[in-house]
Design a protein around this nucleic acid. Sequence first.
DNA 1: TATATATGTCAGTTATGTTGACGTATATGC
DNA 2: GCATATACGTCAACATAACTGACATATATA
Lengths: 151, 151
Amino acid sequence: MSNRDTNIRKAIELFFFAYRDFTGEADTILDEYGFGRAHHRAIYFIGRSPRIAVHELLAILKITKQSLGRVLGQLITEGYVRQEIDEKDGRRRLLTLTKFGASLERLLTERQSQRIEKAYALSGKGADRSFLKVLEHMIDDLGSIHPEIRD
Amino acid sequence: MSNRDTNIRKAIELFFFAYRDFTGEADTILDEYGFGRAHHRAIYFIGRSPRIAVHELLAILKITKQSLGRVLGQLITEGYVRQEIDEKDGRRRLLTLTKFGASLERLLTERQSQRIEKAYALSGKGADRSFLKVLEHMIDDLGSIHPEIRD
DNA sequence: TATATATGTCAGTTATGTTGACGTATATGC
DNA sequence: GCATATACGTCAACATAACTGACATATATA
């Protein structure tokens, strides 16, 4: 196998293992709450953009409303997410984390943040910027992602 | 929100979107074969390590033998993977890709390789090394991963 | 010979996604 | 104001890929 192949294979594999460990830690915590990764995604993006509309969340997650409906229903019923009607557009339901939701979100995000910061610290100067750049260029349509992420 | 938080959140999100797009392209191809991401993982790691034993594959994938059994069964029945008994240890079944399996593996890996190389090319000098370094430091137990990956 | 290891299989469950159909409320364009 | 589009919700059926638990068999090793 060529050197190029070996090197790219290393990237493919590290990407797989890193993503697994990155999500695995959160998965363990979520388990104690009876939630899964789908709940995490919802909590995360609602936390990032309070008063986000359901259709906006669907566009980010790229899943069907039926799939989201199930997890959102649980999160609302169990008091982690609050829903309100948009005053400007009565069709929209705006989603916000409750106190409990925000607390869980912080717990999960804090762990993942620490993992990233640890990796940055061990990877030398400028590695953080390079890491983000490579990830950005691996994404098909960066423009379609919520504004805040586009620098 | 602090600058640190915003920056780390960007990493969390880009990691999520990049991984989704990275796997999504392969998922589409696999669909045409009636396979899923689980089949891809098996094909990939068998392709990387021909004559790998089932228990070694299980250790890499960290799934149960029942889960692997299903996808492996399909791959063998449909002629993508070949199984042989280890001469040195008759309990072991060694797994190798057939001609068809190797062809599918190349198709999938080639797409992912191109995505990574494109991202490298757009990310400036040294970004590739930094990218790998950060990923490595995000992994819990790098040592447990198959030897070849440890440089 | 006893025990550990490697593999396979059967059965039932869970999480997360899908499609398709249908209903309702609200907004918008002509 | 009426037709159409958008936003949301819900019911039902289904698919994939993971899980646990139980049990069986063959082979290796102490």
